[in-house]
Simulated assay, not measured.
Amino acid sequence: MNFNLSKYLTDKQNLVNQYLKLILHQYDNRHELIMAMEHSLMAGGKRLRPILAMAAAQACGKDFLIALPACCAIEMVHTYSLIHDDLPAMDNDDLRRGLPTCHKKFSEATAILAGDALLTHAFNIISDPQQIFNIYPGYKTRIKLISKLSKAAGIQGMVQGQMLDMQSFQLKQDNDIDHLKNIHALKTGQMITLSVEAGAISVGSDLRTIDKLIVYADKIGLAFQVMDDILNIEGDPSIMGKAAGSDILNDKMTFPAIIGLEASKQYAKKLIDSALESIDELDEKAIPLRAIAHYIINRDH
Rank of each mutant, 00 (worst) to 15 (best):
M1F: 07
M1N: 10
N2Y: 10
N2L: 08
T10L: 13
Q13C: 08
L15V: 06
Q18E: 14
Y19K: 08
K21L: 12
I23H: 03
Y27P: 01
D28H: 07
R30M: 01
R30L: 00
E32Y: 07
L33A: 13
E38V: 01
H39Q: 08
P50K: 13
A56F: 06
A57W: 01
A59V: 03
A67H: 06
A67G: 06
C72I: 04
C72S: 09
M76W: 06
T79S: 09
S81A: 09
L87Q: 02
A89S: 14
M90E: 02
P100F: 08
K105I: 01
K105T: 01
E108C: 05
A109D: 11
I112Q: 03
L113V: 10
L113K: 02
F123A: 08
F123Q: 11
D128Y: 14
I132F: 15
G138P: 00
K140E: 14
R142N: 04
G157N: 08
M163V: 08
L164W: 12
M166P: 01
Q173M: 15
D174T: 14
D174C: 02
D176V: 13
K181E: 13
L186N: 12
G189F: 09
M191L: 15
I192S: 04
A198Y: 11
A200C: 04
A200G: 03
A200P: 04
G204I: 12
L207Q: 08
I210K: 07
G221L: 03
F224Y: 15
I230E: 11
L231E: 10
M253S: 13
L271C: 14
E277C: 09
D280P: 00
L282M: 11
D283E: 11
K285Y: 11
L289R: 04
A291R: 09
A291I: 06
A293I: 05
R299T: 08
